[in-house]
Simulated scan of single mutants.
Amino acid sequence: MSHSADNPLRVAVLISGGGTTLRNLIEKIATDKLWIKIALVVASTEKAKGQQYAIDGDIPISVVDWKSFDSTDAFSEAVFGGCRAAGVDLVVMGGFLKHVLIPADFENRVINIHPSLIPAFCGEGFYGARVHQAALDYGVKLSGCTIHLVDNHYDNGPVVAQQSVPVLADDDADALAARVFAAECELYPQVLQWFAEGRVTIDGRKVAVR
């Protein structure tokens, strides 16, 4: 189904920390070039500072504190139960650091952005500065970001899009992270616009944009 500026794609954004991805999406929506409506922000902890962006944007917030649940199943059901209640079309992970299990009705409807070119430097334990330091330690000449569909394993779902950035000789983890994040800020909204326009097709692990 395709959407428009007047009939935007409804999304939930999942956060665990500062909410920089959420802030970027809110800014892009304000330009009228991104046909999505953030119907819900889900925070995995009350300490997630990114909630302030939702408050400022008058976006509903659901705090689903992972520490309150005794299993991943129960935590996941609480997360996606809120998404169902909000009537979202797509779930967007924006720095969401907790593992969830994807229910059948959300298969191929959850996307994540990872700060490397998957399958390099990904999987359990690879997040934040750890990813960039691993890239530097390995000596790669290119890094970047990957947007992928989410399944029940870390950074394993089908790749939707990737953007590369150079790794420079004098980079430290912070410098590389800043360059990758700049790419993320352009690629994530672009991919969400593709979804809003109904241009994304999924066939197993093969994702195409029409």
Results as ranks from 00 to 15, higher is better:
G18E: 06
L90S: 10
N108L: 01
V64L: 02
G157A: 07
C83D: 02
D137T: 00
D105R: 00
K28R: 15
A39V: 07
W66V: 11
F75M: 08
F181P: 01
D73G: 00
N152E: 05
R179I: 06
E197K: 14
K33E: 14
K67S: 08
L149Y: 15
A78F: 01
V209P: 09
F80P: 06
I147E: 01
C122I: 03
R179T: 01
V11R: 11
K37Q: 11
M1Q: 13
D65F: 05
E124S: 12
L25K: 10
G204R: 08
A48H: 11
I55F: 02
F126L: 13
E184K: 04
Q190T: 15
D171V: 09
I118Y: 01
I113H: 03
P119H: 02
L14S: 01
T201P: 07
G82I: 08
V41I: 06
V167G: 03
L101T: 08
L14H: 08
E77T: 13
G18A: 02
A12C: 10
V79P: 04
N152W: 01
F80H: 09
P103G: 11
F106Y: 15
A39Y: 05
S116A: 15
D137G: 04
V11N: 10
D6E: 15
C122W: 03
A173L: 06
G18S: 11
A12M: 02
V41Y: 03
L40S: 06
R84P: 07
I36D: 04
F96W: 07
G57A: 15
V79D: 07
L90D: 10
P60V: 00
N108A: 03
V209I: 14
L90F: 12
G95W: 00
R23A: 13
Q52K: 15
L168N: 13
V200L: 10
A86S: 12
N156T: 08
V159S: 05
V150I: 04
A196S: 12
D171K: 07
Q133V: 03
R10E: 04
V63N: 05
R199I: 01
A134D: 12
P60W: 02
V165Y: 05
I26T: 14
G18P: 00
I15H: 04
R179D: 00
V159R: 09
W66S: 07
V207C: 04
G82L: 09
A104H: 13
D174V: 07
A169T: 10
T45F: 10
L142D: 09
G17N: 14
V191L: 03
I59S: 08
L22N: 15
Q193S: 10
D155P: 05
A85C: 08
G82C: 14
N24R: 14
V42D: 06
S143M: 02
V167E: 09
T201L: 13
Q163E: 14
V165H: 07
E27I: 04
Y188R: 06
S2C: 08
K33V: 12
K49Y: 14
L34F: 13
F96D: 01
A78L: 07
H132C: 02
Y154H: 10
L187M: 00
V160L: 10
L168F: 13
R23I: 00
Y188V: 09
T45C: 11
D73I: 02
M1T: 13
K67M: 01
A30F: 04
D32C: 14
R10Q: 14
F75D: 04
I26F: 12
G19S: 06
A196D: 03
K98Q: 14
V42Y: 05
C83L: 03
V131L: 06
R130T: 12
L34N: 13
H132S: 05
D89E: 11
